[in-house]
Nucleic acid binder design. Sequence first.
DNA 1: AATAGAATACCGCATATGAGGTATGTATTT
DNA 2: AAATACATACCTCATATGCGGTATTCTATT
Lengths: 205, 205
Amino acid sequence: MIHVAIVEDDLDIQRTLALIIDGTPGFSCMYTYNDAESAIPGILDYKPDVVLMDVNLPGMSGIECVKKLKVERPEMDILMLTIRTDDDTIFDSLCAGATGYLLKHTPPVQLLKSVKEVFEGGAPMSMEIARKVLTSFRPSIYTPLSERETDILRKICEGHNYKTIAEELFISGHTVRTHLKNIYKKLHVNSRAEAVKKAYKNKLI
Amino acid sequence: MIHVAIVEDDLDIQRTLALIIDGTPGFSCMYTYNDAESAIPGILDYKPDVVLMDVNLPGMSGIECVKKLKVERPEMDILMLTIRTDDDTIFDSLCAGATGYLLKHTPPVQLLKSVKEVFEGGAPMSMEIARKVLTSFRPSIYTPLSERETDILRKICEGHNYKTIAEELFISGHTVRTHLKNIYKKLHVNSRAEAVKKAYKNKLI
DNA sequence: AATAGAATACCGCATATGAGGTATGTATTT
DNA sequence: AAATACATACCTCATATGCGGTATTCTATT
C-alpha cells in the first residue's frame, strides 16, 4: 500500500486526485492540504510515502515547501504537479529536491504509474520536462569565444594563474592577459570569478 | 513510420534489436552498424529518425560518436543503450547530446515505447537513471562551510570583491578576507577561481 | 568548567589582477 | 583589395588578492 499526501489549493483538483488515488487498489490518500504552511507539520508527522505537491500555492510556494520538507527529511519523495513548463519553475523544483515533475494534464493512469515509480526509486517526468532536463546538460554550442579563448577560460576555471597558463600553452603571460581581457569583454564580466561562474552557468567549457 | 538505426558491436544484441524494431508495425530498422567509425558517415547520409547507440563500442566510444553526430546534426535524436549505470558514463552521454538513456535489460515493449517517445519529443530514461539525473540538481547538503562562509562564497561567485561584500554583509573587509581564507582551507583550493569552480561543481551554493 | 568552532577584526608584504593603452602578423571573409 | 577576427606581445598603474600572522567575543558541546 502506497500512502500518498496531496498539497493543492484548488479544491476541485485536490478532490479529483484524492479520488483517483483512493479508488485504486494499492494506493491510499489519507491526508490532503490546502497550503504549504499546514502541509509541512502534517507531512512531517504522518510520513506519507509520496507527496503530490502543487507548485503554485498561495503564500509559501510548493518549491519552498519542498525545500523545507527535504531539509527535515531528505529521503522523502515528492512529485511536483503543475501546469508551468518554464525552465525556472522546473529547475528550481528539481534543485529544491523534487523527485519527479508531472504536468497537470497527466491522465490518471499515468499519474498512478508515476506515483508507483517514485515509490520504487524512479523519477518520473512528463515528456517535455524530461527533454528539457536532458538538454540542460549539453554544453552551449553558441559561444562568443574563440577556440583559444576557450582554452584560456578552461585553465582559468581550473584555478591556474597567468604564469602557469602561459607555460602550459607555450605563450607569454602578456598574451594570456590579453586573451583574458577579451574574454571578459565578450562575456560582459570583469573578474575571474564572474568569468568562471558564467562559464559554468552557460556551459561554455 | 519511425526509421531507426542501430550502432552496436555485439551482433547478437544488434540482431535482436533489429528484429524487435522491424517486427513492429510503425517501426523500421534499415541500417545497423558495428562501430562508431562506420556509423557516422552512414547515419549522416541516411538520416534515421532515431539512433540506438551502444555506449561501449570498440575503437571510438558511443559517447564520442554522439558528440560527432550532434556537431553535424544537432536535431538528431539518439538513445543510449548500455549496461553501465556509473555516473560518469551517464552524464558524459547526456553532455554529449544523448536524448535518452536506457539500460540494456529494458524489455522490448519498453524499448519500442521509448523510441516512440524520443520521436515525439520526449527523453526516456530507465528508472534508476532518471533518479540519478534529478538528484544531480540538488545542492549538496554536506557542505564543510558554515552559513556565513556560504554567504561569502555566494557573493564571491557573483563576482563581488572584498569591499562590496563587506558593505553588503555589514562587516569589515578584513573579516571577509578571513572568511575567504577559511573557505579556501576547507575546500582545499587556493584561489577565487578554484573556489567558484568547486562551489558550482559540488553545488555548494 | 573547559574546549572547540564560528564570526568578527586587524596588520604587513609580495604578487596577481583589472583596466587603460599600442602593435604586428595571419587567416578568413567580403 | 579591404575588412574583420584572431593570436600574439608589450607597457603602466592602482588596486585586489593570497598568505603569513594575532586576537576577541559568542555559542555550542563535552
